[in-house]
Design a protein around this nucleic acid. Structure first.
Lengths: 204, 204
DNA sequence: GTCTATATTTTGATAGAC
DNA sequence: GTCTATCAAAATATAGAC
């Protein structure tokens, strides 16, 4: 049924479209890619492609969803080792510049309410922040990180660094070691004592 | 000559256009704003606007350039207190969500070689990294930060955090204190001893 | 400096044949 | 499932009048 079922051909084509679309959206951004362009690359007409996805926006959202579920890993409560998972994901991303560019570009664009990806990224950040903060709290309970640090702040900094490093890496791939730098940061955060890191006057 | 010169009117209109364009690009992104839209807002026709700027792209680049020169501050060598200046800039940005959105969106888009802003942001990052790293080195010479830390890495992390925090702030303005968090990070980096922050195996 | 008018291109989406 | 044909709606840029 999987190989010869009535939908086998359609599903295969659907996958090819999603992969091609990912590459194009990643390189040029949502607005600069036309459905025609993706279709041609897949050996289809524009109308032929839109048989599989009812609109450009739906195609785009499906691309995002497809690449978002690296959550897998069953039998482990989600937040356990979330920071390590974040670092691992960043590390793997170093082999997929297209995917990185897609998420960097789209998360930035998503800050506009008009973006088709607005809801998607809003939920994603809320989920990720909570996962990381919970992991930080567990480290605190085990005295592996200062209990006086604010877990939500640490989470925000880690996620910010991950995002910002990916941006820099896209511009200068050979000069930025994303996962190495993120690991350094995580190690530093764990060795810092809270008393030393109280905010001072932010202005010069 | 400045007020009544033959170009006074043209220059004033030019400024109005640049300001309006900034707001629109910031909210909707380069591709989702039409020249017509900006023109109407300025009480001009599309052709009327394009009398001042030969193309949409040129208008856009001029907007970026205009908002980039907060370098000013004469009589101080550029790199001195660069980190404090970075924090100060982030702090001021909290009053200008439009400007933040413009730079976040455009720096992300600029990672594509096809982006009109590619060269602009490439140069900007190279310049900023060098400024921050040099400031870090000066702190190291004064023993205010561990000499064993790599100045370029610290610079990369600070810039990454600044960029990433701005992204998160756009999505959840009330939950992210950009300059406060960045200040915390800077303080932590200065109190960390290098021996404790040696990289370990990045994978779990 | 600003307008109207227009040329040219491109896009997303639909209808209907095969 | 895929194609051809077509529509309608944008957009940028230019020409030329005032």
């Amino acid at each position: 049924m999987a190989q010869r079922g009535p939908y086998a051909k359609g599903l295969a084509k659907r996958e090819e479209i999603l992969q091609t679309a990912l590459e194009h959206f990643a390189v040029k951004g949502y607005d600069r890619v036309s459905v025609r362009e993706i279709a041609r690359e897949c050996g289809l007409s524009q109308a032929g492609l839109l048989h599989h996805f009812s609109s450009k926006e739906e195609l785009f959202l499906e691309v995002l969803r497809r690449r978002d579920d690296r959550n897998g890993e069953p039998f482990v409560p989600e937040h356990v080792h979330s920071v390590d998972r974040l670092i691992g994901a960043v590390d793997r991303n170093a082999d997929e510049p297209g995917l990185v560019r897609l998420f960097v570009t789209m998360s930035a664009e998503s800050t506009s309410v008009e973006s088709p990806a607005h809801a998607f990224f809003e939920e994603r950040y809320a989920w990720l922040s909570e996962q990381i903060a919970e992991d930080v709290r567990q480290h605190q309970e085990r005295n592996e990180i200062s209990a006086d640090l604010d877990a939500d702040s640490v989470a925000a900094l880690l996620i910010a660094a991950a995002d910002g490093l990916q941006l820099q890496w896209l511009l200068r791939p050979d000069r930025i070691d994303m996962s190495g730098l993120l690991t350094s940061l995580w190690n530093m955060l764990r060795t810092v004592s809270a008393a030393e890191s109280k905010p001072r006057d932010p202005r010069r």
